[in-house]
Amino acid sequence: MVCLEVIFLGTSAAMPTPDRSLSSVVINRNGTLLVFDAGEGMQYNFIRAKLGFNKKTTLFITHMHSDHILGILGFLQTLSLQGRNLPINIFGPSPIREFIMENMKLLNIKLTFELHVHTISGSQGVALKDKDYEILYCKSEHGPGICSFAFCLVEKERPGKFDIKKVKALGIPEGELYGLLQKGKNIIFENQTIYSKDIVGKPRSGRKVGISGDTRPSNNLCNFFRDCDLLVFESTFSSKEIDKARESYHSTAIESATLAKEASVRKLCLTHFSSRYKDLTDLLVEARSILLNTELAFDLKLLKIDYDDL
């Protein structure tokens, strides 16, 4: 079974607090690390989370605001100082390449690994394709002139359940024939055709995890996050500050929960909290009044995402 975990490295908004760092979240899929945003100093919690310095790692940047990108250079340098040799790919809005390359030049940062920076554009698309999953992106709404994106990890379908009782009842020996049936191949056993569809159930969906970045809620994002097993959505303000949320193109807890409910999300986790809130209870109460299966993120929080058919 493929392990899928989400680890929060930073959960504060524009300003860090004594117990909350700036924005960064990691999806760990069986040791492959998918890092979304890199707020200043995020490598500290990356080290504390013991995620590993030389694993397959890709960075995705939602937008070019300082609290989401100033940790990139420090993170890369930390990996280099630890002797990393595997390449890293970074995906983000068009200024991302210039920002990284110019600052590496000014600071004379020399890496021990290859770095590949890719720009993404348009309203929606595929940032990364893997044999088992894709990372999709969708344009979000974070203000005029600001290019911002939300992301989704979408796993590919899994084979249906293998009916072990049925194959044993047929007397089929374990080994190669089992493998062929599981791969959808029909077999001949004792002069009888055994059809894979009679042994293996219908394909089962993979898991889906959404990352909002900074944004106002929108119909596009609601459709983009449809049927997420976990949605990580910003909740900068409570409903009392709805005017501030609209003015700064952020979301309130109620708005985040409403979008998640309309999108049939299984679980919502709120993050990116304004430093004005010393106690987040009110935000959680607001969100749970809409979607009960809502949690608050905190630095180093880990969430495991199980298959919905277990």
Rank of each mutant, 00 (worst) to 15 (best):
L4F: 02
L4W: 01
V6P: 07
I7Q: 05
F8N: 04
S12R: 14
S12H: 00
T17R: 07
S21D: 09
S21I: 03
S23E: 13
R29T: 08
T32A: 07
L33E: 06
L33F: 08
R48M: 14
K50E: 14
K56E: 15
T62D: 11
T62G: 13
H63T: 15
S66R: 13
I69S: 05
F75S: 10
G83Y: 00
L86E: 13
P87M: 01
I90M: 05
I90E: 06
S94C: 04
P95N: 00
R97D: 12
E102P: 03
M104S: 05
L106M: 10
F113Y: 11
I120E: 07
G122A: 02
Q124D: 09
Q124A: 13
Q124M: 12
G125L: 07
A127M: 00
D132S: 09
L136F: 05
C138M: 14
H142G: 13
I146D: 12
P159T: 01
G160I: 05
G160A: 06
K161L: 15
K165I: 07
I172H: 02
L177G: 02
L180T: 03
Q182T: 04
I187R: 08
I194A: 04
I194V: 15
Y195F: 12
V200I: 11
K202D: 12
K208I: 10
N219I: 15
C222Q: 15
D229I: 00
F237W: 15
E241S: 14
I242F: 10
I242P: 01
I242L: 12
D243E: 12
E247V: 12
A257F: 03
L259C: 04
L270A: 01
S274M: 06
L280N: 09
L280H: 11
D282Q: 12
L283W: 09
L284N: 00
E286N: 01
S289L: 06
L292R: 14
L296P: 00
F298W: 15
F298D: 12
D299T: 03
L300D: 01
